[in-house]
Design a protein around this nucleic acid. Structure first.
Length: 914
RNA sequence: GGGCGAUUAGCUCAGUUGGUUUAGAGCACCUGCCUUACAAGCAGGGGGUCGUUGGUUCGAAUCCAUCAUCGCCCACCA
């Protein structure tokens, strides 16, 4: 017998993961079986495991393991994302620490450093996923910047360019001065921040002492002002028609213009216009043909054009200029003000609107496709309401073209070449092709210059947005753009599991890409060209104050330490039990702010560990039993057979209910149902029933059946808690090589006998009530007492079933079960359903307390029956409600009245006794 | 400004097309037990009238409207 009363996850989890890997269980190759495929949302190659990863990878693992157990060809493709901005920023920082500036080295040198670093530190997160138990096909690990995937990116870029969907244009864009690149709209996160509103007065040109006061949160941009705007119908300013004002500091004369964009109520009603550094100002500038003065360098410092503070950072300048304006008498007022500030999603730098030349992807057609796919449920969202958010972003009024170029080196370089000596913005000199050679051929053909060589071409310096490679992920991980063998088998993938926060970045765009290319790749006959049939959006993981877990808040537990503390099974249990499908989950685990270790009072994961421990001990119980070949005595046999029959049926019921939960991705409910089934039904009832008296042996038939139940329980729990189930599975029986829980057979649900389950519910109710009576009356829990059943048809019926009375005797410590039609004088009566029972015992009843209890119960029942009585005497109810409902109400009423009658009888008996 | 979601027991949440005994679970809590699988355990128990106010209906936690509070998404913010 296994000595240790506690389950120890640490060593066992490593052992089993190695075992699974050694047997290659997670590897998938196309075959004749039904495929079940999932592609992982690729984490940042330099990332570390956080709670969000743990949640969505646990879910993916549950789905993939269940499919594997069901005999499907389960394939979970792992991989990482090159995450251009985040990774490049990290490499730049690292090089700076080494004393190397990015601007001092060549693109090639930089990429060498980056790859070196990626090879050394990248993919740590994948190793961490193994600790969680993730059963990915590691042989298939992909990376968004590896050759095949990069080729796919170039291919689709060229394809889209040819289709006229990609264009290049000078636009107001979001500039990240830290990463020194442009960002897409989705990469800018707006948040309310506390700032100041500066009121600055501009002198009217030619006046002695006439001023116009504007309000701004960004006084440093005054240096780039090219007008002051007021509303056309603002009477305060009509007299200034045609006048000009002098911009402070730079003493530039700029026009006062009239534009409806200006809100009269805001501030002073006068708006400074800086077309180079504000989206709206740019539009105003276009309308009024204003000068665009770019006063910033690409790193957010002041440029020559600013004339003042050249080379100093914009935020330093903001403070300085306020002082200088005040000194010069221009600063009228400063007030505290809350406004929303856009920051770069990756670097957190305040985004600077700038006019730049970028590549864009036209989104209108794509958006419609993506919207229709989900609207028609070809791609189904769970929970469904996320469609609303999706729709809101994709509808044609809101959708905006996707800026796909980035001024970075870490990524796929844009496959566009320019002729040396010609301006970059001259569309005629752009050659887009997958290779330089092809571009050259194009250039020769279009210019008619056969003498051109590669030297005459210059490739676009920029790379494409990372999401421009990850939107191809469900196709490219199967090398689908090169050959379609695997694509045909695994595509569309079954489900995508991801957080809703990347719905726009990734989910929507994958759907677009799926419909754009997979049809052509797979051939005409294939209609199912969506990248996945279903999307399960997980919630965000939040702390107990409902804050999103994030590095900057320091409120996220260290995922690996958590696994060390509670075991992967415990953590998986904790994650799933903290919230339900699609809702944000509150992971209430207090952590040590320094070590990020979860403090011991955390209940969440220890519940999971306790569960492991419970099953471990159930296993120990069985292994400690002496098994004999001769059958047990008759009574025991009847009990055991009843228990086995009941548990078998209960098992089918749970199995069936869980099928529905799986279909709708209610995984936490499925887990909780298994938890209470194993702990409550299996351990507390089934095992206690078949457990022989101390020192007694168990018959082989019952023992075998019990092992069989236990085994099947381990299989159905395996997707949720893979390690403990594998360990127990092996402890239960001697296993041949290749006989493992991870590849065992998930049982198929079959019909179950509801009458039997109902009868057993009654037995459980009777046992509980007897236990309660013993506690309440100070009787020993194990003193053998007789039970009297007041015979009536219904109570008789229950006892017709074989083994019921024997089972009651065992579980409720009864020495006899007898039937009577008389009242039992020294019996404590109780009701189960409408049947009356007496537990016979020598004791003095607290008459007063008992009377009170019964009176209270009668009162409750009377209220209840009166309510139903009213309902039933309402003709409209009886006429309109379905017959079944009316019958049910009648039964409720009769049962209630019956109970009242019995209780009143009890009350009389009490009176007689006192 | 447009939109979405939430509001049920101390906490976290179920409640699947309105009708199985005037609401369920887990945790927490209370009582009694160191009973030879498990005290990280066993047995039992208390606790909510479903955010507000109306409406629809024979019947509402469930449908509609209103208000309130909280959270989120998009757009805008001098």
């Amino acid at each position: 017998m296994t000595q240790n009363t506690r389950y120890n996850p640490t060593e066992l989890e490593t052992k089993w993961y190695d075992h699974w890997m050694k047997h290659n269980y997670f590897h998938s190759e196309p075959d004749e079986r039904e495929a079940y495929s999932i592609v992982i949302p690729p984490p940042n190659v330099t990332g570390v495991l956080h709670m969000g990863h743990m949640l969505n990878n646990t879910i993916q693992d549950i789905l993939i393991r269940k499919a594997r157990l069901e005999g499907k060809n389960a394939c979970w493709v792992p991989g990482t994302d090159h995450a251009s901005i985040a990774t490049e920023a990290k490499v730049v920082r690292l090089l700076r620490e080494k004393g190397i500036k990015k601007s001092d080295i060549s693109r090639e040198e930089f990429l060498n450093y980056a790859f070196e670093w990626k090879d050394k530190y990248g993919g740590i997160i994948l190793e961490q996923l193994k600790k969680l138990g993730a059963s990915c096909d590691w042989d298939r690990t992909r990376f968004t910047m590896e050759e095949s995937l990069s080729k796919a990116v170039l291919k689709v870029f060229v394809d889209l360019y040819k289709k006229g969907k990609i264009y290049r244009g000078l636009r107001m864009t979001n500039w990240d001065p830290e990463a020194k690149t442009v960002l897409s709209n989705e990469e800018v996160i707006y948040k309310e921040e506390q700032s100041k509103l500066y009121h600055v007065r501009y002198q009217v040109e030619g006046s002695i002492d006439e001023w116009v006061t504007i309000a701004t949160t960004r006084p440093e941009t005054i240096l780039g002002d090219s007008a002051v705007a007021v509303h056309p119908s603002d009477e305060r300013y009509t007299h200034l028609q045609g006048k000009r004002v002098i911009v402070p500091m730079v003493n530039r004369s700029v026009p006062i213009i009239f534009d409806r964009y200006v809100e009269m109520e805001f501030g002073t009603g006068a708006l400074k216009v800086t077309p180079a550094h504000d989206m709206n100002d740019y539009d105003i500038g276009q309308r009024h043909q204003l000068e665009t003065i770019d006063i910033f360098n690409d790193d957010g410092t002041m440029s020559e054009a600013a004339q003042f503070y050249i080379g100093e950072d914009r935020f330093v300048v903001r403070k300085k200029i306020a002082k200088d304006l005040e000194a010069a008498g221009h600063l009228v007022d400063v007030e505290d003000y809350k406004n929303s500030v856009g920051r770069s999603e990756r670097t957190n730098a305040v985004v600077e609107p700038r006019l730049t030349l970028q590549w864009f992807l036209a989104m209108k057609g794509f958006a419609k496709t993506a919207l229709d796919a989900v609207r028609s449920e070809e791609v189904k969202f769970y929970p469904e309401h996320f469609f609303n958010m999706y729709h809101n972003w994709l509808n044609e009024d809101n959708i905006r073209d996707w800026c796909i170029s980035r001024q970075l080196w870490w990524g796929q370089q844009i496959p566009a070449w320019y002729l040396n000596g010609q301006a970059d913005d001259d569309n005629a000199s752009i050659f887009v092709a997958e290779t330089a050679e092809e571009a050259l051929a194009q250039a020769k053909a279009e210019t008619g210059r056969a003498d051109l060589t590669l030297e005459d071409l210059r490739q676009d310096e920029d790379v494409v947005d990372t999401w421009f490679s990850s939107w191809l992920w469900p196709i490219s991980v199967f090398d689908g753009f090169e050959n379609q063998d695997e694509l045909r088998y695994y595509y569309p993938t079954n489900v995508l599991v991801t957080g809703w926060d990347i719905m726009f970045f990734w989910v929507a765009r994958m759907i677009m890409a799926g419909y754009e290319w997979s049809g052509d790749l797979l051939g005409e006959e294939r209609k199912d060209i969506m990248p996945f049939h279903e999307v399960y959006f997980t919630g965000m993981v939040r702390d107990n104050k409902r804050r999103k877990m994030s590095k900057s808040l320091g409120n996220s537990p260290d995922a690996l330490k958590l696994i060390e503390q509670y075991g992967a099974d415990g953590v998986r249990f904790g994650m799933l039990s903290s919230g339900s499908a699609g809702n944000d989950i509150i992971f209430d685990a207090p952590i040590d702010p320094n070590t990020k270790q979860v403090l011991n009072e955390s209940q969440l994961c220890s519940q999971g560990l306790n569960f492991c421990n419970k099953m471990w001990n159930a296993m120990r119980l069985l292994k400690g039993l002496e098994v004999v070949d001769q059958p047990a005595d008759e009574a025991t046999t009847r009990i055991n057979q009843l228990a086995i029959e009941w548990f078998e049926n209960k098992f089918q019921q749970v199995l069936k209910e869980n099928e529905q939960r799986f279909e709708s991705y209610r995984l936490s409910e499925a887990l909780m149902s298994l938890y209470s089934f194993i702990w409550g039904d299996f351990c507390s009832w089934y095992l206690e029933i078949i457990k022989p008296a101390y020192g007694q042996p168990i018959d082989r038939a019952t023992y075998e059946q019990t092992l069989n139940f236990f085994e099947r329980l381990m299989t159905i729990l395996h997707p949720f808690m893979p390690f403990v189930t594998e360990e127990i599975w092996h402890q239960l029986r001697d296993r041949k090589a290749g006989e493992d829980c991870v590849i065992s057979q998930y049982p198929k649900a079959s019909a179950f006998d509801e009458a039997l389950l109902n009868d057993f519910d009654k037995v459980q109710d009777i046992v509980s009530k007897i236990r309660d009576l013993r506690t309440k009356n100070g009787l020993s829990a194990k003193e053998l007492l007789p039970l009297w059943v007041e015979s009536g048809d219904r109570s008789r019926q229950l006892f017709d079933r074989d083994g019921i009375s024997e089972l009651l005797r065992k579980m409720a410590y009864l020495n006899d079960v007898r039937f009577t039609s008389e009242d039992i004088a020294n019996g404590i009566s109780f009701l189960s359903g409408t049947e009356k029972y007496y537990l016979e015992a020598e004791l003095s009843i607290d008459v007063e307390a008992e009377r009170e209890r019964i009176t209270k119960e009668i009162k409750r029942l009377e209220g209840f029956t009166t309510g139903i009585g009213k309902k039933l005497s309402n003709e409209r109810f009886v006429n309109n409600a379905p017959a079944a409902v009316v019958d049910k109400e009648r039964k409720k009423l009769n049962d209630g009245l019956e109970k009242i009658k019995i209780l009143k009888g009890n009350l009389q008996d009490l009176e007689a006794m006192s």
